[in-house]
Design a protein around this nucleic acid. Structure first.
Lengths: 221, 221
DNA sequence: TCCGTTTTGTTCTCCCGTTCACAAACTCCT
DNA sequence: AGGAGTTTGTGAACGGGAGAACAAAACGGA
């Protein structure tokens, strides 16, 4: 899904593993807050909802952070995963398109608590400019370039209607953004070296509908 | 991701293909609206953002709906895919948790236009009851059972805080819902036969952060 | 110190999904 | 009617990820 064409680095962690690391991170945070100091791969796997063998294999890509016969130190492992996926540092993020979804994203606490700082909310509609959302003022989309330059933004979020998405993406790429999270429908085309991840709510529902339909067919057969 | 333990049916379409069918469906709709009557696998694949060989293989699981040397009839193929994933019929949906995200979901036009009808918005907070969102009144969560029974709801959406999610899922399952779209953080445990799909916004950003960090490391190496 | 217990890290095998490559099938032109 | 040109549908090779199984390593008790 995510196009990777940039430079290869020493250890490359499988894409499937990368997608699970944030899940482990969250499980570890929960365990830590519950006062757990050490946990086995079995326990952590249960908390993360995966197979323990898969968990151990995933962690082995990062290094050897466990102790045989004992398990993993929760806080230590948590730090190692956070460092590996880069959430120990602070990532400035720009959100474009402050409709219903943009509002929800701006207010979503899960971003800030995980190292993502929303530095600007942009919208092309002048009627929205000046509105305060989640303590941040909505600014004109044309301010994109100056904001990206000022804060060194590398990650952009697109929450606009589908028709505007490609134009927004082009502007983002032009001013140096290299990672895009896209909530708009349709396919974005971006140059090599730019990562795009897409979240499509209606696709998720349609997949559920397919399985639901199959269940119904099975019953009357 | 999605646990499938229900009855196996005649043709089983690979999970990866099922996830792409909605994308093809959208591309076909766009083509149809642009007045295109026929298209090749190459053209459709470009519109959907996939490899043409993959597209043809995916479509071959549904049947043989193309014509060699010509391509696919846009409207005919669109109908076939829609029928296969079950969006020719109307799916009643319940949304639980009418915070920022719940608002966005209730207002999201992509659901209704794709055969999903929001029949109820539920929230445990009495302060929200009676509020009109997207033309629908927010009702108490305790009305879940009666609403599900009345409308024959099979699909539920969870947009609550993480702490409430498991309890909501349990109630949903107890009253007959068999497909859940979960936006809350954390792992849901449900009995076999119930499908859960999870959308985790912060996981998506963290995956981007990982790749972004790698790009940065590559530059200074 | 030595042995049994626990748990990690890793190897091996299997399966699913992707991609290539090509034969079959259809259209159009002569 | 026949041949050239297109495009589908699919067989086969390939690569990556999932899970089982086990050896290596640490701990604890006698």
């Amino acid at each position: 899904m995510t196009a990777r064409t940039s430079t290869e680095s020493a250890r490359d962690i499988p894409e499937a593993t990368v997608a699970r690391l944030p899940v482990y991170l969250r499980a570890l945070t929960t365990l830590s807050e519950a006062g757990t100091g050490t946990c086995s791969s079995e326990a952590l796997a249960a908390a993360a909802g995966v197979n323990s063998a898969k968990l151990r294999k995933d962690l082995s890509y990062l290094g050897s952070y466990g102790t045989r016969g004992v398990g993993y130190d929760v806080d230590y492992l948590r730090y190692q995963i956070a460092r590996e996926i880069g959430v120990t540092q602070d990532w400035p993020v720009v959100i474009v398109g402050i409709g219903n979804l943009g509002h929800a994203l701006a207010n979503y606490s899960g971003f800030r608590s995980r190292g993502f700082r929303t530095v600007a909310l942009l919208d092309a509609d002048p009627a929205r400019h000046g509105e305060m959302v989640a303590g941040i003022e909505v600014q004109p989309f044309d301010d994109l370039e100056s904001i990206v330059a000022e804060h060194g933004v590398a990650i952009g979020v697109i929450a606009t209607p589908a028709v505007a998405a490609q134009a927004v993406a082009d502007r983002m790429v032009a001013c140096g953004i290299t990672s895009i999270l896209n909530f708009a429908a349709g396919v974005l085309s971006v140059p090599a070296g730019v990562d795009v991840r897409k979240v499509d709510l209606s696709v998720e529902l349609q997949v559920l509908a397919y399985h639901e339909q199959r269940k119904a067919q099975g019953e009357l057969a």
